[in-house]
Design a protein around this nucleic acid. Structure first.
Length: 259
DNA sequence: AGCCAGGACAAGT
DNA sequence: ACTTGTCATGGC
């Protein structure tokens, strides 16, 4: 479960019992997830929307089958077997965009802190965590815009604030929206995302992969670059190009642990 | 105490 | 089209 919820694709899941369960906020609702007898169990005070959860956790995708395909390559086999629980979540586009603007040249634990402060300041109080602390929704783009640049210094996000604001502005005005990418090819997706200040090639790849479910995108951060030099100096095998992003997530986890 | 982090951007070749 | 310096902050 940690493999999926705490592997650098989502930043708002947290465990309060040493990894037995995870509590997180997704699209304004609080969820607690755990495994009981090898079944994924989801609890929430909000009404459970099964279709939504299936989509979010990508339960409609047969990951065992997909992993078999990846494991035909011996190097990928090593990566998959290192953390076979990893799945690529289908998260909210807006949240992913803003979160990964924050991620640039930053480390995961600090990214989490900045996002937490952003939710505290601009989001809505929606309930409490197991430790009694308040939980907040991820703020709407409009709420972030209304917050203003000066107040955003509270985030201690440094030079990323203009990017947070530009992304929020473009989302709030619908100049950019998740829907506009339907039926567009990868190149166009990349081009649109790159127009947002604070979004370069790497962040665009993450947004397309994690926020649009575009599995052909392959984000190359410093860990992946290091890993690829050692594991795949000639690049990822062509036959995996349509699921490169999913392979990438296994490689990322392997690299952070072993390289 | 310093190096590094899910990098982008502008200025310089 | 590539290379380089700079940027704010804090985790480890």
């Amino acid at each position: 479960m940690a493999a999926t919820l705490d592997c650098g694709q989502a930043f708002r899941w947290k465990t309060y019992d040493n990894g037995i369960s995870y509590v997180g906020v997704v699209d304004g609702a609080i969820y607690k997830v755990m495994y009981i007898d090898n079944n994924l169990v989801v609890e929430s005070d909000s009404k459970l929307d099964v279709d939504f959860l299936i989509n979010y956790f990508s339960l409609d995708i047969d990951y065992l089958q997909l992993q078999e395909e990846l494991k035909k390559n011996p190097t990928l086999r090593k990566c998959v077997e290192h953390a076979p629980g990893i799945r690529v979540l289908r998260q909210s586009f807006d949240e992913v965009l803003i979160s990964f603007v924050i991620s640039q040249n930053n480390n995961i634990s600090r990214i989490k802190g900045i996002i937490e402060r952003l939710c505290e300041m601009c989001g809505e109080k929606i309930g409490k965590a197991p430790d009694g602390s308040h939980l907040y929704s991820f703020p709407s783009p409009k709420a972030i815009v209304n917050c203003g640049e000066e107040n955003l210094s509270y985030l201690r996000a440094g030079y990323r604030v203009p990017g947070i604001l530009d992304a929020s502005n473009k989302l709030a005005s619908k100049e950019v929206s998740a829907e506009m990418f339907d039926g567009i090819d990868d190149e166009q997706v990349q081009k649109i995302l790159l127009r947002i200040y604070g979004v370069g090639p790497k962040v665009a790849d993450c947004v397309a992969l994690f926020g649009l479910g575009r599995f052909s995108f392959f984000p190359k951060d410093v860990w992946i670059k290091r890993a690829m030099e050692k594991l795949f100096p000639r690049g990822l095998p062509q036959k995996y190009s349509s699921i490169a992003g999913i392979a990438q997530q296994y490689i990322f986890d392997y690299a952070r642990a072993e390289l």
